[in-house]
Design a protein around this nucleic acid. Structure first.
Lengths: 208, 208
DNA sequence: AATTCCAGCGAACAGTTGTTAACTGCATGG
DNA sequence: CCATGCAGTTAACAACTGTTCGCTGGAATT
């Protein structure tokens, strides 16, 4: 389906990706609302005006970063929430998956944490939409569980939101643990596991 | 104990507070890392250089804002977690308290949410310390409950952290609901109540 | 082979930033 | 009452910002 790009378009995508990567790097120690377009182009090694060939503004670039950071994460939902095994196995799998994701894409995780409540409205909105999608997907996956019998749609969405928030909180804790002692990582993993166990326990005793 | 300030010191505190207030206002639509000191002084109506009489930098000002936003909140912990009544009453009381706090100090709540993972390290650190204190205080208050019998210190701190995170998440949801339809507020209150009920349920069935 | 397209460049713009230095006027303490 | 302290001022600096305009060289199209 995807037509092979011409040399022209290929080069364009390359510098475009370079701009996105450079921005993500610069955003490790500042917020998007203070990121200048000259700063980004300087880091890549192109003229400031080249920026406009790809993005309308840094806010625009930020929205695209949201897609890059969260867009490719949706398939993971089903493969953990709707996975086989009892809840204890699913919890271990989820914590492990988060830990590895933070290791693999720390800058993405930091970006989402920073800009979720950050100073750039369109970016906040984009993140909010993605997270709402996550919650709906988790809700749908939870509905497939036998222990969800008797649950209202509303309560299922409540639980899904709790899981999504918990996922983000855990990812941030792993991120903070990265720049600390090595055993902090294990502490975070254990604490996150216990949190999920407690939530799971509450879930099994819900309205019974 | 507090000695009455001289006219001199009183005036200084006044412009100092004006700078803090102006900064808090400006931070409603941007992050601290993009807040300029000239911007703040301009909003107050003083010369840019006057800023240095009060703060070393905008990061410094940010740290003080953290104290202003969270420092005076500690007494609330005991009066809700360790309050009389069953868990259902405590939940209603907590949600109500959060809702009113967001109504009274929306800018403070937004600031904490924005800078908790923001681009200014000293401010992140200050918030992290305050939240850790909250968690310890909640832990101590929970320890007083009869249903905490048999709980390890570690698990109690885990539960306290979950409550603190939940408090912040709820506050942020109330904040977002403020700039939307009026019934959104009730939806948030209901969802937050259900979340706390589920956690409370898990707590009562913990290791039993 | 001739033409069009367009990603990236260079220069210039008006405006902004943080920080310095030396000052002024007034509240304070001796 | 006089000397000191110090909050706030004015002026100036080098550096930086986003955005404009016209250009250029090579890929893409005809």
């Amino acid at each position: 389906m995807s037509h092979t790009l011409g040399l022209r378009q290929a080069q364009k995508q390359k510098t475009r990706q370079a701009l996105l990567d450079a921005a993500l790097g610069l955003l490790e120690e500042q917020s998007l609302s203070s990121l200048g377009l000259r700063e980004v182009t300087r880091a890549v090694g192109v003229a400031p005006t080249a920026f406009y060939r790809h993005f309308r503004s840094t806010a625009d670039l930020g929205v695209e970063l949201v897609e890059a950071a969260l867009g490719s994460l949706h398939p993971m939902i089903d493969s953990t929430v709707a996975a086989a095994g009892d809840s204890e196995e699913r919890i271990a799998r989820a914590v492990d998956l988060i830990a590895h994701h933070v290791d693999a894409y720390p800058a993405h995780v930091r970006f989402i944490a920073r800009e979720r409540h950050g100073g750039v409205q369109p970016v906040r909105e984009a993140i909010r939409r993605q997270l709402a999608r996550f919650a709906e997907e988790v809700q749908a996956a939870l509905a497939g569980h036998p222990e969800s019998a008797g649950w209202s749609e509303e309560d299922l969405l409540m639980l899904a939101g709790l899981y999504v928030d918990q996922m983000l909180a855990t990812a941030n804790q792993f991120l903070e643990a990265m720049e600390g002692p090595a055993d902090e990582r294990d502490r975070v993993a254990r604490s996150a596991t216990q949190r999920l166990r407690l939530i799971s326990l509450g879930r099994h005793h819900w309205k019974s």
